[in-house]
Design a protein around this nucleic acid. Structure first.
Lengths: 239, 239
DNA sequence: ATAACTTATAGTATATTTGACTACAATACT
DNA sequence: AGTATTGTAGTCAAATATACTATAAGTTAT
């Protein structure tokens, strides 16, 4: 791919083999009924028609990459007003079959119930996939996804970001299942409860679940204010 | 900047306003006599002639971005064989005066004494600057630099990047003293030794110090490969 | 109403890790 | 040979984590 570009030295447009195309790819994690899921789209047109991959697309000339990420996600899946965090740029020369394309990965964790997913633009379908049901994705999207998951697992141990995946009011079991699912480990109920409560991070809402077919559990909420106060004192969140 | 690129849908080369140029910029931190410094280069040609900035340059068509980062750094400053970590992509549409250029930031922390700095390629000079003596840099390089510094301060507690400040082969006492200095704490020799060895992060080189006026200590090296394997498994570095 | 079942929560006993400390081994210098 | 310096092994008690048991509090079926 010979490209035209502005040479920094002369200020003129020259042709050289140093240009690259750039895309955005979004990894959106959701949590539902104790399972971690990821949002994928089916390509409706082009060389990847009928295949599934992460929601992604080209960056426009006049938009920042953060804005591009939000736009791409909105166009393909209908999801908007989301805080997308930049993950990493992926730039293997052969990651894209038709030429050199570098992609910048973004990721976010959301509560599925808060967002309506609707396929749009070049996406013929958009669906949540449970992590264990993700098959072959286009290009290097499996690699991007597994990198994201690794990143998520590291971050979720270091900061209580996982709370974003739960409803406002949640039980300790829900929280525990979240960690089990994200970290892919088994936890012990009594021990988990003791550990998390000792952090003094949760607010006891003095409420209980309703309409459940078993003993109702206490409801808690995560209070970002308390978390901020704790971190200011040198608190170390570690699950 | 109208660019040619391969359209994903048709597979043909078309002209559109969605192309971007990509560069690499490297933030190299050095530590010397208790002071943090950063490596800057003076542009010898082009529109920024005579101005200082981070070592950076274009990514070539056939190289990965990691390799590009190492090449750019080598060409401009003579520094090679360095583990550069990807930081973040910066993509404000107006960050570069002559058109849309996205840059991917890389950073590293090195021991100054281990590397010879020699300006090359388009750089007319390359020098270490103490952080408090950095003035106006080209483009958005001040922003990139301050982002890097913030990142570095967070990361030094979470990941073993401090190892880069030691010689390749080091003793456990050297390592301990480094942490004592950086974290401003006192550590217990036997306990530190036990803790760090249990991480299985160090390679025992089966060698000893030489020409020391005391019992020679075993030499170890830090192996980034091992560290990578461990983090993949959910390893948590915490000193 | 009561037995069976599910989930929440309390408690306990054992293993593992940590922190403070002691002892001693190895080497070089005087 | 004696002394100084640093490396390395080990001990012991306290703290913490882990595995497990027991029981309480609801729901549902009979």
């Amino acid at each position: 791919m010979v490209k035209k570009f502005i040479d920094e030295e002369s200020g003129k447009i020259v042709e050289k083999k140093v240009m690259n195309a750039i895309t955005i790819d979004c990894v959106i994690f959701g949590f539902d009924q104790g399972k971690l899921e990821v949002l994928l789209v089916e390509h409706g047109t082009g060389i990847s028609k009928g295949k599934w991959g992460l929601p992604g697309g080209w960056i426009k000339e006049d938009e920042s990459i953060d804005r591009a990420a939000n736009r791409v996600l909105r166009e393909l899946t209908g999801i908007e007003d989301l805080y997308l965090e930049q993950l990493k740029a992926f730039g293997d020369p052969n990651r894209f079959p038709l030429g050199r394309v570098i992609t910048i990965g973004y990721y976010a964790l959301i509560k599925k119930a808060d967002y309506d997913v609707k396929a749009g633009f070049t996406a013929s379908d958009a669906k949540w996939y449970r992590m264990d049901q993700v098959n072959d994705l286009i290009y290097d999207h499996n690699e991007i996804l597994s990198y994201s998951l690794k990143h998520l697992r590291n971050r979720v141990r270091q900061a209580p970001i996982g709370f974003n995946l739960l409803p406002e009011k949640f039980t300790l079991l829900q929280l525990m299942q979240l960690y089990q699912e994200v970290l892919n480990i088994e936890l012990d109920k009594p021990n988990f409860r003791r550990k998390i409560l000792k952090m003094k991070l949760l607010v006891d809402l003095k409420e209980k679940e309703k309409n459940v077919s078993h003993r109702a559990a206490k409801l808690y909420k995560f209070d970002p204010e308390i978390y901020k106060q704790l971190t200011d004192k040198g608190f170390n969140f570690e699950i």
